[in-house]
Design a protein around this nucleic acid. Structure first.
Length: 798
DNA sequence: CGCCCCGGGATTTTT
DNA sequence: TCCCGGGGCG
């Protein structure tokens, strides 16, 4: 694409088989594809084509027969990224892409643990607790020990355990070094132990365990580890800046040389190198790709040092720097460079492009978050009319709560949008219930799952009865599930006995469908069929259908969709069991189904935005205390991480970038004034075209100014942080009515005149759409053209 | 046991 | 503002 005339020396190149893989790559990219050695660090700036480099590197290894597909392990952070990589490698090398492991850390570890579980006290049918499951469990444990009186909250305990696990500290190790004379410490230590034991009893792992236990496994059973070391000769890790200590340790274990000719270890039918007199085998070749400027997950244990000290960890490592950006305009890159340059203690890196300056960045300051949202909506409409597809537009924000105001306005402006992330499908209560039903069948040891569904729908089995069952099970040394089969011995009333027996029967029937006797193979439809049976015969669906809560209708639809997911799973995994299905569901994230946003504007948090790109990007709420977020201010490295987050957002934009903020923002139902983010001042002023700058508003606003209520910084050179007191701005704030009106029956046709609460009078040009989605195209007397959703727009006919 | 009302608390990001 | 949990009552 550029500099194609520069001759490139391919190290060790024989030419031929992979020439096309180097076509269109710049020199550093080519080196990243062709370098061969024990360790390679590719420092890939935003938009520098790292996925291309990574896929071409894998393809090159395969085409030159330097590796079999089965010798390649490529780790990504999301399943979506893994899928994309598999597909792109597939396009380059065809069928042989099939034998590779391209997956997330978590999925790869699940695969390993399933094979080896029997070696260390678990069974291979273990289930996976997501953070909600583990929170529920910890909550119960905290309650049992009355730990709240010592200031231990479930959330705090959960977070701390997670951090410890990510540092490979288990409960025993913690107890050894903890100050147990402090009662709170002692209690926490006990809770940690409780939690570990509860998981083990439930035959379950939480997210953090998946990594940590794999590391423990490798360390405790060197022969097992050697088998994987011999198998994986090329290990590639994407987003290396986001790895935590446990993941780092895992990579280290896998890339260790195999010492001595240990006898071959064969596990689960895995094909391994010939065992005969294996000589010492050097460690696998490791390639990591990352950008420390895009490290935004320190809060969950990612350690930026993993990448910044890579060369120290792997002496002799080659480092390749990719700085040429193929995504954004120079203006956008200059802004990004300037902002990130304010982080000290980083390796200098300068993104550049040869594609021209492009348009200036647009800034806008709203009076309120709704004013800001209106700007976003208007601007989206304007660029849409100029030919930009909605799917090429994204709106980012720091916190999920900010999406509400944007949604309200986008709905009214009839801009199609989709929220990425947010309340995830698999976190909806009804889906979690369905999952708990499946888990209750698949992993009878999991008492948490049974507790969750034992009274859903309502069967009259309350806390008291649950404890009765639990104690009964504990006394007899049987599982909770088995206890349900002894309803008559529980000492509960006849009504409850019937209910419990019925539930037990339903679970049993589902087990027969989904878990056939050993030797038999369940049909592919087993999971979906079993799920339907559970939801139907348990009365769960009926209860929702009988309800008059309109939300329950949506819940039924969600469950229908979930059954469809199970059928889809069967199509893709004909041999997949319930266990496999549950694992897959547990490990998919909201970031994984980002692409079904066709024809819609994408709304998401800045974190979710990582790895994506759009023609036009709006970053909203660029205010102090929001971006950077207030909570980060006190944390070491917090503000720097927030800056990286902002940097990630900026570098998502290809052609247009909008930065917006509001002078007032409703928080906890109160209206607070806001101060422009320091990040705005870090952008050279000539790059930004302020449609309405903060200074404009300060000048225009009514004269009762106050100080910036403890907020720091001023804005630009001329205006100190003068802020109107919130009382003087009341008339601007929250003009959107809280209650949605319903004009569903309003008759409207081209030619009608209407009055809009905000926009005044205008004439209807056309009405399109049907029913609740009827849209009026209105030209207002002010000259503005708007699309309005008739059903809810604040309009009346005149 | 379940429902309802009340008050308090909380609000970052997620494999 | 909204969500959750606790407590009281039917």
């Amino acid at each position: 694409m550029v500099e194609s005339s520069v001759p490139v020396v391919v190290p060790g190149g024989t030419g031929g088989v992979d020439d096309d893989l180097l076509e269109g790559l710049n020199p550093p990219q080519r080196e990243a594809v062709t370098y061969r050695g024990p360790a390679l660090l590719i420092v890939a700036g935003a938009g520098s084509g790292k996925t291309r480099v990574l896929t071409h590197r894998i393809a090159s290894l395969l085409r030159r027969r330097e590796a079999w597909p089965s010798q390649i392990l490529a780790i990504t952070f999301t399943n979506k990224a893994a899928g994309e990589m598999r597909e792109r490698v597939g396009q380059l090398v065809g069928e042989s892409a099939r034998g590779m492991w391209i997956s997330t850390f978590h999925s790869a570890c699940v695969r390993i643990l399933r094979r080896e579980a029997e070696n260390f006290g678990f069974t291979s049918s273990f289930t996976i607790y997501d953070s909600g499951d583990s929170r529920a469990l910890i909550k119960r444990l905290v309650k049992d020990r009355e730990a709240e009186r010592f200031g231990l909250s479930p959330a705090g305990v959960q977070g701390r355990i997670s951090r410890l696990k990510n540092e490979l500290t288990d409960a025993a190790a913690f107890a050894r070094q903890a100050n147990l004379s402090d009662p709170a410490e002692r209690l926490f230590s006990e809770l940690f132990g409780d939690y570990e034991r509860a998981l083990q009893r439930a035959n379950a792992f939480d997210f953090d365990d998946l990594i940590a236990q794999t590391v423990y496994l490798f360390r405790a059973f060197p022969a097992v580890a050697d088998a994987y070391r011999k198998r994986f000769r090329h290990i590639l890790v994407d987003e290396y800046q986001d790895t935590n200590a446990a993941q780092y340790a895992l990579i280290h274990e896998l890339t260790r040389p195999v010492v001595g000719a240990a006898e071959a270890y064969s596990s689960g039918g895995m094909m391994i190198f010939e065992p005969e007199h294996a000589p010492e085998l050097e460690g696998a070749s490791l390639t990591v790709v990352g950008d420390s400027d895009q490290s935004i997950y320190a809060f969950r244990g990612a350690d930026i040092r993993n990448i910044s000290e890579f060369e120290r960890d792997f002496p002799g490592a080659r480092v390749v720097l990719l700085e040429q950006n193929y995504r954004s305009t120079q203006n956008i890159l200059s802004a990004a460079n300037a902002v990130i340059g304010h982080n000290f203690d980083r390796k200098a890196k300068n993104l550049w492009t040869d594609s021209g300056a492009g348009e200036r960045i647009v800034g806008y300051t709203g009076y309120s978050q709704h004013d800001e949202a209106q700007f976003v909506a208007d601007e989206i409409e304007a660029i849409h009319r100029s030919g930009v597809d909605y799917s090429q537009v994204a709106v980012f924000y720091r916190t999920n709560a900010q999406s509400r105001a944007l949604e309200e306005i986008l709905i009214r402006a009839a801009v199609p949008y989709k929220i990425m992330g947010g309340t995830k499908f698999y976190e909806r209560a009804e889906i979690k219930d369905a999952l708990a039903y499946l888990t209750a069948v698949a992993n009878p040891a999991d008492e948490m799952a049974l507790r969750r569904i034992v009274n859903k729908p309502k069967r009259g089995i309350g806390d008291v009865s649950i404890e009765t069952i639990s104690r009964f099970a504990a006394d007899r040394g049987i599982t909770f599930r088995e206890a349900l089969g002894h309803a008559g011995d529980l000492g509960v009333g006849p009504k409850l006995q019937t209910a419990i027996t019925h539930l037990h029967g339903v679970l049993g029937a589902a087990s027969e469908i989904m878990l056939p006797a050993t030797g038999e193979v369940a049909p592919p439809t087993a999971v979906a069929d079993g799920l339907s049976l559970l939801l139907g015969r348990s009365g769960y669906l009926d209860a929702l259908r009988m309800s008059r809560d309109p939300q329950d209708e949506a819940r039924v639809e969600n469950l229908d969709e979930f059954v469809a997911v199970a059928r889809e799973f069967a199509r893709n995994n004909p041999d997949g069991t319930v266990i496999d299905f549950l694992a897959e569901v547990a490990l998919v994230s909201d970031a994984d189904d980002l692409d079904d946003a066709s024809g819609s504007v994408s709304l998401m948090t800045l974190h979710t935005a990582k790895g994506l790109e759009y023609d036009a990007v709006f970053i909203t709420g660029v205010e102090e205390d929001l971006l950077p977020h207030r909570i980060s201010a006190g944390e070491p490295g917090g503000p720097a991480e927030e800056r990286r987050l902002f940097y990630v957002g900026v570098t998502r934009a290809r052609k247009r970038l909008y930065l917006s903020l509001a002078m007032t923002r409703a928080q906890f139902g109160e209206i607070a004034s806001a101060v422009p983010s320091r990040f705005l001042q870090e952008i050279p002023a000539d790059l930004v075209d302020w449609r309405q700058s903060p200074a404009d508003l300060v000048r225009q606003a009514p004269p009762r100014f106050g100080g910036g209520s403890g907020s720091r910084g001023g804005f630009r050179n001329d205006t100190p942080a003068l802020l109107p007191k919130s009382t003087s701005l009341d008339r601007f704030a929250n003009k959107v009515p809280a209650k949605v009106r319903d004009n569903g029956d309003m008759e409207l046709a081209a030619g009608d005149r209407i009055r809009h609460d905000d926009f005044g009078e205008g004439r209807v040009d056309a009405v399109t759409g049907e029913g609740a989605k009827r849209i009026a195209h209105v030209r207002f007397d002010s000259g503005a053209a708007k699309k309005l959703l008739v059903k809810i727009a604040p309009i009346e006919k005149i």
